[in-house]
Amino acid sequence: MSTFTIFLILIVVVAFLLVVVVMVQNPKGGGLSSSFGGGGTQQLGGVKKTTDFLDKSTWTLATLLLVLILLSNVAINRSSETVDSKALDPDATTTQPLPEALPNTQDAAPATSTEEATDAPAENE
């Protein structure tokens, strides 16, 4: 397994976790942070601490995702060969195959004859 593949798997996992953390948050206070409050008297961890945790985890996962993406660029396998565009190379010649000959269309009857159109009387005389 190459280093790039490991980075790619890590990027997918971190992106999935980031989506989950963002979806759990609710800006109106009705998300996971409000479900930890027990009727106003009992609080498991507290609403403020849950909101802080979700906020910090969002920023941490976003930063980690950005760093993994930048590091994966370093891990891409690059061969020693240079592959340049043939459009930029003035010495490169490209050959295109010739199109196949069209079938003979003279056997088909024409839809209108040109003689009929010229024999018609002119209306402006």
Rank of each mutant, 00 (worst) to 15 (best):
T93I: 12
A111T: 11
T3W: 00
P121D: 05
P121M: 02
P27M: 09
F36I: 14
F53I: 10
N77E: 11
L10I: 04
L18Q: 06
T82P: 03
T63E: 08
G29E: 13
L8K: 09
S2R: 01
A101M: 02
L61N: 06
S33M: 13
G37V: 07
G37W: 02
M23S: 15
W59S: 10
L18K: 01
L70S: 07
F4C: 03
G30Y: 10
S35L: 10
D119C: 10
L44A: 13
V67C: 07
V21M: 11
G38L: 12
Q96S: 12
I6Y: 03
L71C: 08
V47C: 09
V12G: 15
E116I: 08
V12M: 14
F16K: 04
D91K: 01
A120G: 13
A75L: 06
L64Y: 01
L66Q: 05
L17S: 11
P99G: 06
N77Q: 07
E100S: 07
W59N: 08
G29P: 15
Q96D: 13
E125N: 09
T50P: 06
T51N: 11
K48N: 15
M23G: 15
T94Y: 03
A120F: 11
P90V: 06
L8N: 14
P103E: 09
G30Q: 13
L88G: 07
A117V: 15
F4Q: 02
T112R: 05
G39R: 00
P99V: 03
F36P: 12
K56N: 14
L65P: 01
N124V: 12
D119S: 12
L8P: 08
L44G: 11
N104T: 06
S2I: 06
T3R: 00
M1V: 02
Q25G: 06
E115R: 01
V20M: 10
I9M: 05
P27W: 05
N124I: 11
L98R: 00
A117N: 12
I6A: 08
D107P: 06
V24L: 14
T63P: 05
K28S: 14
V19H: 06
M1K: 00
L61W: 02
A92M: 07
